[in-house]
């Protein structure tokens, strides 16, 4: 039942997405370097390492990780 609800929500979301968006010639802002989702990737990576070491939750934007015996 839960799976059906999730699939239904996914279809609804994708259906909704098809009515969103812009034409290719309207995308000049998305060509900007600072609009990329991985822009400032070093800052994000360093921040993730700090928060992974100091807090009980991790991940979300990227993998939840492992890879360090951080104290």
């Amino acid at each position: 039942m839960k799976l059906k609800i999730c699939l239904g929500l996914l279809m609804l979301t994708l259906g909704g997405c098809s009515s969103l968006g812009v034409e290719p010639w309207q995308k000049q802002h998305f060509a900007r370097e600072d609009m990329a989702l991985n822009h400032e990737k070093l800052d994000l990576s360093l921040d993730d390492h700090i928060y992974f070491s100091k807090e009980g939750s991790s991940g979300g934007r990227a993998f939840a990780g492992g890879g360090c015996g951080c104290n």
């Binding site: 969103l20 812009v22 802002h29 989702l37 979300g60 990227a62 993998f63 939840a64 990780g65 492992g66």
Partner: peptide, 28 residues
Amino acid sequence: DKQTLDLILGLTQIINANWLMQFNYGLS
């Protein structure tokens, strides 16, 4: 030792000429 398996499902959507949105579900 320990072993970690991560999975991420993502959706990125351009909303209009100025905004985009990203949604992720992660399982670890």
